[in-house]
Write a protein that binds this DNA or RNA. Structure first.
Length: 484
RNA sequence: GGCGCGUUCGUCUAGCGGUUAGGACACCGCCCUCUCAAGGCGGAGAUCACGGGUUCGAAUCCCGUACGCGCUACCA
């Protein structure tokens, strides 16, 4: 039987980078094993769940290229894929548990429970529910329910149950004493299922074979195993992923920088870089390979190479990796992908790109080796698109402050103004010869021209820049820098 | 408090009884070079959390301790 896995986010916020990793691992595992990747929306928290969040989560996954075989928008044989639409399943599951006496009604009030907890916490031992209502006679309970008394449904942990062993793929065997398991709530007094109940009912109904999820659920797993058993369903395999932290070892939060997938997108990261980096946070191909393509990931991913320890998110490494992926793009593709950023920066329009895509492609060599993020591109190319350039005062002082530099620049304006053809090689040889003629260091000449034309001592390669800028613009900028 | 999990260079990791503890990011130096990058080469950086065992031999196996984290809800 091929694996069936699921990613089950709660739409209570954007897709967080940790959630994205969980999604990626599930997806990669399904792809590598020929299994099925299910997306299920766990929206039982009516207070905090919103359709907007659901939409954003789907968008983020699509942007990453993490596609699902069953779930919202694509449907599937185990739907519906929203928990709020599966009330009948939970009701049916509860009926089964009532029938085999693995669930019982509890009439304790919230105040009573709180008081009991206080007392238990003061002493030693477990603080779980004391099972008062488990002793109530079935007929009495039925009568109280019929009379309309408020109640929840609890799991009856089997009295003779030994240790509950979770054979986790990542952490190995861990066992939990059944005595530490309390009769937790399955169904709330308003009739809605709790997480530990709904999740199990759905995982069982959807025939999930491997539950790959965050570490924070490891302690819930024995509870869920008990529910699987009460339902008479086979228990899936589990793989619990450790958390992703910020640099201070605390939960990754906005304080550390971007946390949602959309925020990373907006900061100029490429989906292929995020996919690669996040996959590597807690998983390795062989311990040596760092750049791992989507194809390799979906072919080679395996659960047994997931590491146990929590990872700290390293924004610097992600940035480096993003640069690698930018450089890996062909000029035509990068030209197309940088367009939205140029448009957003107000430098150009989509229409202009459409009218001369090859010219945009010629801009790529100016920035491909320098950009770490897509947001680096517009500022680096701004001088190409603007009519005139404002000289950075510090740069002007450094490169144009001396008489020698100004004389060299004047010579360059003249020499380039009368050059027969306007291309990279002609520009370069003209300027190099001029440096010899004027007996000035090439670097001095080049920097003077650079500042005059780009406004700064730091710019894309000079000759390429002049070539794309054109003769008229180049020469007129040199003249205006000289005040002539 | 109870239960559970984790701990290898600053960071991500390899390692699954015998290695000069390997790779990547970041850092430093050199080379290349029209600036900045990119690239190439080299360097520094880990008493494998600590303490006991087991073993001829332990980062690797066992037991404690410390620290961190999770669960302990009618949140997920």
């Amino acid at each position: 039987m091929s694996p069936r896995v699921r990613f089950a986010p709660s739409p209570t916020g954007a897709l967080h980078i940790g959630g994205a990793r969980t999604a990626i691992y599930n997806w990669a595992f399904a792809r590598a094993t020929g299994g099925t990747f299910v997306l299920r929306i766990d929206d039982t928290d009516a207070e905090r769940s919103t359709p907007e969040n659901t939409a954003q989560i789907l968008r983020s996954m699509q942007w990453l290229g993490v596609d699902w075989d069953e779930g919202p928008e694509v449907g599937g044989p185990y739907g519906p894929y929203f928990q709020t639409q599966r009330a009948d399943r939970y009701a049916a599951a509860l009926e089964r548990m009532k029938a085999n006496a693995t669930a019982y009604p509890c009439f304790c009030s919230a105040e009573e429970l709180e008081a009991k907890r206080e007392i238990a916490r003061a002493g030693e031992g477990p603080t779980g529910y004391d099972r008062t209502c488990r002793a109530i006679d079935t007929a009495d309970a039925a009568a109280r329910i019929a009379a309309g008394e408020s109640h929840v449904w609890r799991l009856a942990v089997p009295a003779d149950r030994g240790d509950i062993v979770v054979d986790d793929i990542v952490r190995g065997e861990t066992s939990f004493p059944a005595s530490a398991m309390d009769d937790f709530v399955l169904v709330r007094s308003d009739g809605t299922p709790t997480y530990n109940f709904a999740t199990v009912v759905d995982d069982a109904d959807m025939e999930i074979t491997h539950v790959i999820r965050g570490d924070d659920h490891l302690s819930n797993t024995p509870r869920q195993i008990l529910v699987f058993e009460a339902l008479g369903h086979e228990v899936p395999r589990f793989a619990h992923l450790s958390m992703i932290w910020g640099a201070d070892g605390k939960k990754l939060s906005k304080r550390h920088g971007a946390t949602s997938v959309e925020a990373f997108r907006d900061e100029g990261y490429l989906p292929e870089a995020i996919l690669n980096y996040v996959a590597l946070l807690g998983w390795s191909l062989d311990g040596e390979t760092t750049i791992i393509s989507r194809d390799t990931l979906t072919r080679e991913f395996s659960l047994d190479r997931i590491s146990k320890n929590p990872a700290i998110f390293d924004f610097e490494k992600l940035e480096w990796m993003n640069g690698v992926y930018i450089r890996d793009l062909s000029p035509a593709v990068l030209a197309e992908r940088m367009l939205p950023w140029l448009v957003e920066a107000g430098l150009t329009s989509a229409g202009d790109y459409g009218s001369r895509p090859e010219w945009y492609e010629s801009l790529v060599p100016l920035i491909a080796e320098r950009a770490k993020r897509m947001t680096d591109i517009p500022p680096a190319l701004a001088f190409i698109f603007s009519d005139a350039v404002t000289l950075d005062p510090v740069s002007a002082e450094m490169a144009l402050g001396s008489d020698e530099a100004r004389a060299a620049l004047a010579g360059a304006a003249e020499a380039l103004g009368s050059v027969p053809t306007w291309d990279h090689d002609t520009i370069e040889s003209t300027l190099r010869e001029l440096a010899v003629t004027l007996e000035v260091k090439p670097k001095v000449l080049f920097q003077a021209v650079r500042v005059a034309v780009t406004g700064s001592t730091v710019s894309p390669p000079l000759f390429e820049s002049l070539a794309v800028l054109g003769r008229d613009a180049s020469v007129s900028r040199m003249r205006s820098a000289l005040g002539i």
